[in-house]
C-alpha cells in the first residue's frame, strides 16, 4: 500500500470537500432561515464563476476586483430572487417552492448560455502556483488555497452567526418563526438577508470551483453533489454541512481514483441512501416530532 498516494488522494478529497462544505453552508443557511430547499444553488455557483470570468477576462479587471464583483452579483441575484420568486410563495407547500428553485436553476443555466455560450471556459489564473507539499504529499496549489479560503469563510460565518445581531436574529427565526416575530425580529428581513448572504457565499464558492475545474453551463450539476452533502449532514445543521462536505469530498476522491470517475455518483448516492435509511434526518439534523 502506497501511503503517500493515499495521503494525496485524501488531501485532494478534503480540498474538493471544503468547497462542497462551503456551498452546503449556503444551502443550509437558506433552509434554516426560510425552510426552502434551494436546488438552484449549483446554478448560482455557476453564475459566480461566469461573472468572475466576465469581469476578469472580458473587462480585464484584476482578480481582487473581479472576485468582489462576482460576490456582489451573487448577493444581488439572491436579493432579487427572494423578493420576486420566493416571497410570493410564502405559505405554499414546500414542494411548490422547491420546484420554483428548479425553475430558477433552469432560467439561470439558459441565461448563462445565452450570454457566454455553451463551451467550457477557463478562468484566468489568480492564485500563486508554487507547488505545495504537506509532509511529502503533493497538493495542487489551487486546491490548497481553495481549502483555506473555504475554511476561513465558514469559520467567519459561524462566528458571525453567533456574535452578530443579525446572526442571532437568524438563529431565533430558525428555531421558531412565530416566536421570533413576536419578540420584534424583522422576519422578512432575516429571509432576505439569508438569501443575500447565501447566494453571495455560493457565488464566491463558484469562483473557487471554477478556478480549479473551469466553468461551463453544466456546472449546475455541482448542486447535485451539494444536495447529497446537506442531506447526509442534515438539512438544518451547519456542522452537518461541514462534516458532510468533507466526507463526500473524500468519498468522491477515493471512489474516483480507485474505481473510476463513473462510480463517483453511484458511490455518493449509495452513501445517501444508506444515511436516509438509517437516519432519515441526516447525521446532525433535528428530528421533528409529528403531531396528529
Amino acid at each position: 500500500m502506497d501511503w503517500l498516494f493515499l495521503a494525496e488522494v485524501l488531501l485532494a478529497g478534503l480540498g474538493a470537500g471544503s468547497l462542497y462544505a462551503l456551498a452546503g453552508v449556503a444551502f443550509v443557511l437558506i433552509y434554516k432561515a426560510t425552510r426552502v430547499i434551494n436546488l438552484a444553488i449549483g446554478e448560482i455557483l455557476m453564475l459566480g464563476g461566469y461573472v468572475f470570468f466576465g469581469a476578469a477576462a472580458a473587462w480585464h479587471l484584476p482578480a481582487w476586483i473581479a472576485l468582489p464583483v462576482a460576490i456582489v452579483a451573487g448577493a444581488l441575484v439572491g436579493a432579487v430572487v427572494e423578493r420576486l420568486l420566493i416571497r410570493p410563495m410564502l405559505g405554499e407547500s414546500p414542494i411548490s417552492v422547491f420546484m420554483v428553485t428548479i425553475g430558477l436553476g433552469s432560467i439561470l443555466a439558459g441565461a448563462v448560455q445565452v450570454i457566454w455560450g455553451a463551451d467550457p471556459l477557463r478562468l484566468p489564473e489568480f492564485m500563486p502556483n508554487t507547488p505545495i507539499f504537506i509532509g511529502d504529499a503533493y497538493l495542487a496549489p489551487k486546491v490548497a488555497y481553495g481549502f483555506v479560503a473555504a475554511m476561513l469563510i465558514i469559520v467567519a460565518f459561524a462566528l458571525a452567526l453567533r456574535f452578530t445581531r443579525s446572526g442571532v436574529a437568524l438563529q431565533a427565526t430558525a428555531a421558531d418563526q412565530g416566536a421570533a416575530y413576536s419578540v420584534g425580529i424583522n422576519v422578512s428581513r432575516v429571509f432576505s438577508l439569508s438569501w443575500i448572504v447565501a447566494c453571495a457565499i455560493a457565488a464566491g464558492a463558484g469562483v473557487l470551483v471554477g478556478a480549479i475545474g473551469g466553468i461551463s453551463p453544466t456546472m449546475g450539476i455541482f448542486g447535485l453533489s451539494v444536495l447529497v452533502v446537506v442531506i447526509v449532514g442534515g438539512l438544518d445543521s451547519m456542522l452537518g454541512a461541514l462534516v458532510g462536505g468533507l466526507l463526500i469530498g473524500i468519498v468522491e476522491a477515493f471512489s474516483g481514483t480507485f474505481l473510476g470517475g463513473e462510480y463517483k455518483f453511484l458511490i455518493t448516492f449509495s452513501v445517501l441512501i444508506v444515511v436516509l435509511m438509517l437516519r432519515p434526518y441526516g447525521l446532525f439534523g433535528r428530528h421533528e416530532i409529528e403531531r396528529l
Binding site: 420568486l85 410570493p88 410563495m89 405554499e92 411548490s96 420546484m99 420554483v100 428548479i102 425553475g103 430558477l104 436553476g105 433552469s106 432560467i107 439561470l108 443555466a109 439558459g110 441565461a111 448563462v112 448560455q113 445565452v114 455553451a118 453551463p217
Partner: peptide, 23 residues
C-alpha cells in the same frame, strides 16, 4: 444557435410562472 438556451429559460420560466400565478 440560441434555440437550446432559450428553450431552457422558457422551461424554467413556465415552471416558476405557473407556480406563482396559476398554481
Amino acid at each position: 444557435a440560441l434555440l437550446a438556451p432559450v428553450r431552457t429559460i422558457v422551461f424554467g420560466a413556465l415552471i416558476v410562472g405557473f407556480l406563482i400565478f396559476e398554481p
